[in-house]
Design a protein around this nucleic acid. Structure first.
Lengths: 326, 326
DNA sequence: CTGAAAGCGCTTACAG
DNA sequence: CTGAAAGCGCTTACAG
């Protein structure tokens, strides 16, 4: 491996001059050309460690995701990658596998790698998280989850629940099973549900019953069977598209016709929901844009600029075929 | 930020002793305890740059993926993450977005970051790739694509095509549309097709016609319409599940009944294919395991151990409902 | 515009 | 088991 000294010697200049060339400092056209040629010839690549050690900064952004096999996560990653590339940042990725301990671990590990910023898709922010983040002194932008202190880009989960609630109401449904997720997850577990309930605030002739499922499709199938064993609603409102797909699967295996006998809705507008049969009525979030926004905000934070504490990414109701009139 | 000198002073020892403690060298129990306590108290985290600069190694593995919104890629990433975590490696991720130029760029950028190994999901290996890899002197394991020189973990695409071909044949289909992808992609574009053809080697009363599609579902829809405009096969054999889903969608919009009028198959066994209606007959690849295997092989390569040049991950036919008897 | 020198925070032989 | 010293490959004031 060639070092800056090799280049300097070959070009007949001091290494500080080469360094200046590398960092866009003032160098005469003549030496510039000379250095350029030598670098190309030697195929010289500066050592990032030496550079970062001295300059005390890196071009690496850490990203913590709860899982890798999720449409929402993939889309957000695409958005993040998009803007990070443009700004010449690299992505260091950690999969927390939905475990808080692994999230904390990743924060410290990232700190050791001296990332210049952190993009964090958390399920729930605890004091332990706040402490780790504070200790590492890294700029952070949360994605998908709000926090009193940290910067965040969130989806309008409340509004999403409300829009869907109003729609379900308008279609005449009154026997409603809400298949949610743990309230540990504020955005998905609480806000969507609150928005949904709000849509029914002025209605009295309805019966909404609450059930809970895990995030994975197979967990949703189990939860849906459990639900359908207990009750016969006219609609199941699932807290995510993935869970809705699980309900589809359970209903199918019970020979329940969708949507004639049972209507189903989701949240998220996953790619696949469009081609399901019947196509799923859901609420679309702009995941890719949220990822871009979060990356942009983080970079501004790194540059010491001020950024709105909370950025809200909007949503829209996508009406398809899985909800029947009642 | 505290440095090793702060720790050394506070503990009343030399910094080389602290370094030895950090790296598991011989230190008396007494000093060990002292240093341990101080480190905890100061919340000291060693500077990775300084460490890597001197020790000339990192714990970072670079990963280049063609896209992020793919079931196969996600699953392989999960597998990779799995074994990399256990071995204390970090993942530096680059999304090439199916562009060769971005793949090359990523290799050089990774080299600058001094990754200790590269996991590469390429579409096609060109001389430009080989040159970049050779120049950077980084251990590499290819995933999903074979190469004459580089180490790789591949799926048994040929066998997959063969298994599916034999099945299609046994179900009586003779008017077959093979909706493939570009032959640039050896594994998906060539091997699967060759295996499929091989299954028909002893048959003469068949008519297989070849069409081509992009990898994305929306591209597959267009390709499927194009195909169905031109011909009326009894089955469409799609080169990936994603493409098969596009065919489903096109058939649905044309009111063609699946599988009665048109049978469809895919490759990959994406999660979703199980809950489609009718459920998709396909060939399952073990993506997660392939990711684990590749990561394991790469680490062995990094440790200077010898590794089989090519590791083949097997496949199995998954018979479901999308193929009718003919 | 250019160069000599100090220093970033570690690790690693080498003595003792 | 422990410490003093050199050095990894850069960047950055500071002179000139």
């Amino acid at each position: 491996m060639k070092t800056i000294i090799d280049i300097a010697q070959a070009a007949g200049v001091a290494k500080s001059t080469v360094s200046r060339y590398l960092n866009g400092g003032s160098v005469s056209d003549e030496t510039k050309e000379k250095i350029e040629r030598i670098i190309k010839q030697y195929n010289y690549v500066p050592n990032t460690f030496a550079r970062s050690l001295k300059a005390k900064k890196t071009s690496i952004i850490g990203i913590i995701v709860p899982r890798l096999d999720s449409f929402a996560v993939s889309q957000m990653l695409i958005g993040i990658d998009d803007t990070l590339r443009q700004e010449q940042y690299q992505m260091l990725l950690a999969n927390a596998n939905q475990e808080t301990a692994r999230e904390i671990e990743a924060i410290y590990e990232f700190s050791r790698q001296k990332i210049s910023g952190l993009l964090f898709m958390a399920i729930k922010i605890t004091d332990e998280h706040r402490q780790a983040i504070a200790q590492c002194k890294i700029p952070v932008v949360l994605i998908g989850q709000d926090d009193a202190l940290l910067h965040s880009v969130i989806h309008d989960d409340r509004q999403a629940g409300y829009l869907l609630g109003k729609y379900v109401l308008s279609k005449g449904h009154r026997q409603i099973a809400y298949l949610g997720v743990t309230e540990q997850d504020d955005a998905v577990g609480i806000q969507r549900k609150l928005g949904f309930q709000q849509a029914f605030a002025d209605t009295t002739d309805h019966d909404i019953r609450y059930y809970e499922s895990g995030f994975r499709m197979d967990q949703a199938v189990v939860a849906a069977h459990h639900l359908l064993d207990q009750w016969t609603p006219s609609i199941v409102v699932a807290a995510t598209d993935n869970i809705a797909i699980g309900v589809f699967k359970a209903a199918l295996s019970r020979q329940i016709d969708i949507p004639t006998t049972l209507s189903i809705t989701g949240f998220g507008d996953y790619d696949i929901t469009e081609i399901m049969h019947p196509a799923l009525t859901t609420v679309k979030f702009h995941y890719k844009e949220a990822g871009q926004l979060a990356a942009t905000n983080l970079i501004q934070l790194i540059h010491g600029q001020t950024v709105a504490k909370t950025t809200i990414s909007n949503c829209e109701l996508i009406v398809r075929e899985s909800v029947d009139n009642r």
